[in-house]
Design a protein around this nucleic acid. Structure first.
Lengths: 208, 208
DNA sequence: TAGAGTTGTTAACGGTCATTAACATCGGCG
DNA sequence: CGCCGATGTTAATGACCGTTAACAACTCTA
């Protein structure tokens, strides 16, 4: 196969500069990000090459540079996107007036995200250190803010428990929920959702 | 610094062949394995070079080849060692007559291991795919056997729950316990031990 | 004390990777 | 119709990495 027909010129995306978040999202970018998530989750950031990344979407390696300024930029945009999605919906759900319901809503949201996007959750959990510095701080801030939403709900539910302890409990809970990618084999989604939701709820209830 | 005095010739270890597991363990090997655990946990197997590995123990890169046949061999020995330790002690603890006590003993063991060796647990969890094939099967077998010890105890405790569900619960529990490396900051060991033990116990009790 | 074995060193090799350069194709638009 | 920008391609570049080669120093031992 030689060259493929070009797409109908939708929202030309300069590889440099801040990625335009609005307008018609270039489908190629999304395709590459999706493939990158799988590859990074499977082999780690350093274990996946740009060549494989391109091949996964039917391109050669250098073609990726038409859409991203480099390998780091792919990871950065991916983590930024995940963190923003988690925080945005997390903030919405944590705002429920009843803290018990808020916690359940958070649990359901995080679990659905993890079950539907195991690769993304894995990369989000492991590859922060490989994000280049201007954006790493932003991702860290978003991640911390997301954790803080959980801590806030938990604090309303268990006043008297120190914040450090609640934070540690939330991290442990994430570990439980995010174990999905390594254990989802065999079980169907609904059963897994039930099981993990119950386990996580129960684990958090034990925090005193 | 030029060259350093050689060690007093303890158990010369041929880089090839099956690593001799008995006799006086070469301290250099252990040193390298320890540094490798930290580096692999921090940056991933592909993200850590043999040069860094050597430098971490005060050597140059090629010197590592005096003790291991290659980078893969370092990882292989590391994972084999971890899996064997987990399984050996896990089997012992799972044999307690009362399943409730057995579960507690397993929890305490795994948690102590994770809290004392966060790097090892991380590598054990993530890097199996990079172990070369003759040994990967052995590690997988050991890991599976370890999980099966947990499942066996849980089965005695909750007859009627299907095996797949129990296995998924065990994996989720490991995810919770192994979250330690990412969340141990700030809390002291004893507090962390208490918290995670209670959470894991509670999570497993919710499995019906 | 000479030789052998162990454990270092530096230099060199081959491969892979991220990235860039140079060139081709195609669609939209003047 | 002819050009321009977007999106591909292949070829080339430079860095790094895993590994091996060649050589040196030290210890133990015959």
């Amino acid at each position: 196969m030689t060259s493929r027909p070009a797409a109908p010129a939708t929202a030309p995306q300069p590889p440099d500069g801040p990625p335009v978040r609005e307008g018609a999202p270039n489908p190629r970018r999304a395709e590459i990000l999706g493939a990158a998530a799988e590859l990074f989750a499977l082999r780690g950031y350093h274990g996946a090459s740009i060549g494989e990344l391109g091949r996964a979407v039917g391109l050669t390696g250098p073609a990726v540079y038409r859409h991203f300024s480099g390998k780091e930029a792919v990871l950065a945009e991916m983590l930024l996107d995940i963190s923003e999605r988690l925080l945005a919906e997390g903030t919405r759900r944590a705002a429920a007036p009843d803290p018990g319901r808020a916690l359940d809503a958070l649990l359901r949201w995080h679990l659905a995200f993890a079950l539907d996007n195991p690769a993304l959750i894995t990369v989000h959990e492991r590859e922060l250190d490989n994000v280049p510095e201007p954006q790493r701080h932003r991702v860290r801030r978003l991640q911390r803010a997301y954790v803080e939403e959980w801590v806030g709900v938990l604090r309303r539910l268990r006043p008297g428990v120190p914040g450090d302890r609640l934070r540690a409990a939330v991290h442990a809970c994430f570990g439980l929920l995010n174990s999905t990618p390594r254990s989802a084999a065999g079980q169907d989604r609904a059963a897994m959702d039930d099981l993990l939701h119950a386990m996580a709820r129960s684990a958090l209830e034990s925090v005193r």
